[in-house]
Design a protein around this nucleic acid. Structure first.
Length: 582
RNA sequence: CGGAGUGUGGCGCAGCCCGGUAGCGCGCUUGCUUUGGGAGCAAGAUGUCGUAGGUUCGAAUCCUAUCACUCCGACCA
């Protein structure tokens, strides 16, 4: 590609509303242009990157045996009503009406349509297993779009859907996708980590997220550096920090703690470790009649060690809380505890279900609110001062240094950007009454898995992970161009022009994706542009080095260029880039 | 959705408090000079000041409404 006939549109200053580095660099490099909140034009330079990512994804999907199809961006509401997600999805799903007032949606994902395709076209176990995938625009009406294409409303996703006749097959399909994802992200040159994930709203059994490691990531990843345990924060299991409960050594004493409503303040006042305090979180659940009126409210007290945080996803799994809960109102708290928030505790309660975190359940001589304003109890002990907790469960977030649940070390935490997600055991075929005929001639429900890769998010994540003060540093596999030929004085010097054109043409003829910057910009402007855009390999050609029979070769990450003989540069590049072209 | 804020040329911003008919830097156009890391000089072009009302002799500036966008939070995956 010749720069003079391509479209390079760079900015010195990023638009004021960009806040993360990938968004700023993509805007400055002229890869995207904002059209509305969370909605972007993909400009020619950006589209090339997206196409590179898509290509790798397609190749690995095909290698894994998935078959490409394409479902419509606009889908009829009926299918979504059938699966129950019309009601469940909420305003995140954009709904539209056609001229006949019929309901449609802009697809946020395609489980229903794929299940419907299965229903129409798959009749026999002989047609299984099968895995369909597509690369399609998605729309999710995020309440607050941000971070450019990392959390946009419109985005491009690769989504695949597998169907199997039995659990063994479903497992194989899942593993095949998992392995394909590992290959995809390796080929794209990203540092990433697959982590166990909660199945969340989509439902299902097994689930992993593929997380690109970046300090600016929205997700916290919990992993064990000395084993292969890794999970996201929602999922990461916390074992009890104290294996057994020590014998009480202190009497329970009602201690004045005026104005100290936080565990931190109480610990400071009493000069004790924060880990000796217990914090109280009050939740409420409601029973409703058919008309939706509340007929009963249950109050729950969740106990977490003072230095820990509640994990709402885990709390949501407790029997009784799993139908949905809310934080109790101040009025409900006062009527159940006889006390305002800030001094709440589990001692002397009735009519409240006490749920203790695993670590809290094994504490002794702990400090907790006395259910009296300005007082806490010290020296509290289970069994002696209050009944054993009704429920003991893992309800907290993991912290750095916790023992790994596999017993093979301690946990560490890093941040990541979720670029892929695999699920198995989806409920949609059952909900939609979809079957095939099994070997025994009887109808069976297929086992469904779904597998997503956020194509546009991969692009942003790659930049978050690979940039410097000058701009983007593309992994070669997704760079808009693999190599750029940068002549100094292209218009002025016939020697430079001849050498540059020759190298450019040789690279082209070897099938290498090369850009020649023949815009005849000043060297400073040209080189700054090329660094901002982030092309990984650069050959600078100028009269100065040509006199010595050299050109300057520099990788985007290199501090200094290296002199290479004119006659050798094409061969050297071809060797470096060969692994990519296959 | 709650809170805060911003809309002025392609981008970044000033002007608004204290009304008098719009300015700076970058970019863009033309010419000359310059040419190995974001050039210099000269001449230019580009804005119904988000939109709609209102107040006023006069509104970018004050008032009201509205739209868009951003940030923080909640929510969601």
């Amino acid at each position: 590609m010749r720069a003079s006939t391509f479209f390079i549109s760079t900015l010195k200053e990023a638009p004021a509303d960009a806040d993360v580095i990938s968004q700023k660099l993509m805007l400055r490099a002229g890869m995207i242009k904002k059209l509305a909140a969370g909605i972007y034009n993909y400009m020619p330079m950006g589209l090339r990157v997206i196409k590179k990512v898509e290509r790798v994804v397609r190749e690995e999907m095909e290698r894994a045996g998935a078959i490409e199809l394409l479902t419509p961006f606009v889908q009829p509401a009926e299918l979504w009503m059938e699966s129950g997600r019309w009601d469940k999805m909420g305003p995140e799903m954009l709904r539209i009406k056609d001229r006949h007032e019929r309901d449609f949606i802009l697809q946020p994902t395609s489980e229903e349509v794929l299940a419907d395709i299965f229903r129409q076209d798959i009749r026999s176990y002989r047609q299984l297993p099968i895995n369909f995938y597509q690369i399609q625009t998605k729309f999710r009406d995020e309440r607050r779009p941000r971070f450019g294409v990392m959390r946009g409303r419109e985005f491009t996703m690769k989504d695949a859907y597998s169907f199997d006749r039995d659990a063994e097959g479903a497992r194989k399909s899942y593993d095949a996708m998992y392995d394909a994802y590992v290959r995809v992200f390796n080929r794209l040159g990203l540092t990433f980590r697959p982590v166990e994930a909660d199945t969340g709203n989509i439902g299902g059994e097994r689930s992993h997220e593929f997380q690109v490691i970046a300090d600016t990531g929205e997700d916290a990843l919990v992993y064990c550096p000395t084993s292969d345990y890794a999970a996201n924060m929602e999922k990461a299991e916390c074992v009890a920090l104290n294996v057994t409960r020590a014998e009480p050594t202190q009497p329970m004493v009602k201690t004045p703690t005026p104005g100290k409503t936080k565990c931190e303040d109480v610990a400071t006042l009493l000069n004790i470790p924060l880990a000796d305090t217990v914090k109280s979180i009050v939740l409420a659940t409601e029973k409703r009649d058919e008309k939706g009126n509340v007929v009963a409210t249950t109050i729950w007290l969740l106990l977490i060690r003072g230095d820990h945080e509640l994990n709402e996803v885990k709390a949501n799994k407790i029997n009784g809380l799993n139908a949905g809960f809310r934080f109790a109102s101040e009025a409900e708290i006062e009527s159940s505890f006889g006390c305002k928030p800030g001094y709440l505790g589990p001692v002397g309660l009735s009519g409240v279900i006490v749920v203790a975190d695993r670590s809290v359940a094994n504490m002794s001589d702990f400090v907790t609110g006395a259910n009296t304003v300005d007082f806490h109890f010290t020296g509290v002990n289970w069994g002696r001062d209050l009944p054993e907790p009704a429920v003991v469960a893992d309800i907290r977030n993991a912290v750095e240094g916790d023992p790994s649940p596999d017993g093979k070390g301690v946990l560490a935490i890093q941040r990541g950007i979720e670029v892929g997600h695999v699920f198995s055991g989806l409920p949609y075929p059952a909900k939609m009454g979809i079957t095939f005929l099994g070997e025994n001639g009887k109808p069976q429900t297929p086992l469904m898995g779904s597998y997503g890769i956020g194509i546009t998010r991969v692009v942003a994540a790659a930049i978050e992970q690979n940039h410097d003060a000058r701009g983007i540093i593309w992994p070669t596999a997704m760079a808009p161009f693999s190599v750029v030929v940068a002549p100094i004085g292209y218009a002025k010097s016939e020697t430079v022009r001849a050498a540059a054109d020759s190298i450019y043409n040789q690279l082209l003829s070897r099938g290498i994706d090369v850009l020649i910057d023949d815009r005849d910009e000043r060297p400073g402007v040209m080189l700054a542009d090329l660094e901002l855009i982030g092309i990984p390999h650069r050959v600078v050609i100028g009269e100065r080095s040509l006199k010595e029979g050299n050109v300057e070769y520099q990788q985007r990450r290199d501090a200094e260029p290296r002199m290479v003989k004119v006659a050798e540069v094409v061969d050297q590049l071809a060797v470096k880039l060969r692994p990519l072209e296959t």
